[in-house]
Structure formats: C-alpha cells, structure tokens
Amino acid sequence: MAFWFQVIPVLVVLVLALFVGTFVERRHFRSLATREAQFRDMLVTDTGRLPVGCAAVPFGLVIGEVVVASDYFKTFVANLKKLVGGELRTFETLMERARREALLRLMERARAMGANRVLNVRFASSNIGGTSRRRKNAAMVEMYAYGTAIYVPEQATS
C-alpha cells in the first residue's frame, strides 16, 4: 500500500506533464512557424564580411535570448533512453525550440532597428540546473544568439 502512495503521485505528474507539455510544445512550434514566415526576407548569416553597398546606418549589435525548460515527462523519457544510449530526441526538440526562439527575437530586434540583414551570428548556451544531480528532473537551457544588424539596399548585390 505504501508503495502505491509513492508511485501514484509520480504517475499523475507524468501523465499531466505528457499532455500539458505536448500542448505547450505544439503551440510554441506553431507560433515559431508563423513568426518565422514574417522574416523570410531577412538574410541571416554567420559570416562577418560586410557586403557591398551596406549602409552605415542602421548598424549595431542585436541580441536574442531565451530560457526554455523541458517537461517532466520528456526528461523522464530521456533519462530512460540514457540507459541504452543513442539519440535523445526529446531533448533535441527542446534545443531546437530554444535556438529558433532566440534567433527570432534577434531578427525582431534587427527589424525594429530598420535592418534587413544580420551578419556574424553566434550562438551560446548555458544550462541552468539541468546538469546538477539534485535537480535531475529540471532540464533547462538558456540560449543566446547575437549578431550584427545591417541594412543593404535591394539593388546592391551579394
């Protein structure tokens, strides 16, 4: 009986995390897709050379950052998968969400500046709590994207 008192709350949280987590993730992916569609015309590269015909203004550093957490269910599945090894797909979607969101925020700020290109983009990430033993079930990732926003008039090439 005491065994079930320990197991049932975990199962309830797992099932809840599965449904709510999936819902939240799907909504995030949908929102990413619709917002990315608005930035089709913005060229983002990780090369640093200034293109020909680049305007002097606007010109400046743009940053996008976000912290995303995995849900309890996905972390649970990943911890099971770690026993046998291989790809941890449940965490891959977490990283994808973080990177796309960070890049989107970077592009939003670039557009607010009046830029139409972002050069020399770099990504940095750090983990908050996800790797410590005590908080094993809280996989979180902080993603940071930064680059230089510039404006290149349409008629200028490359």
Binding site: L43, V44, T45, D46, T47, G48, R49, K81, K82, L83, V84, G85, G86, E87, L88, R89, F91, E92, M95, E96, R99, L103, V121, S158
Partner: peptide, 25 residues
C-alpha cells in the same frame, strides 16, 4: 569566410544541424 579559388555568387543564409546523443549505461 572565403574559399580559395572560388568566388561566392549567392548567399543562401544560415544552416544548422544539431543532435543530442548518449552512450548506454
């Protein structure tokens, strides 16, 4: 940024690939 002996004629944009892998216990 440049490829020796080549000239970049068109920039397509950022491409990326990621993976998370683990070894068995």
């Amino acid at each position: 940024e440049a490829i020796p002996g080549y000239r970049v004629t068109e920039v397509k944009g950022l491409v990326q690939g990621n993976t998370i892998r683990a070894k068995h216990l």
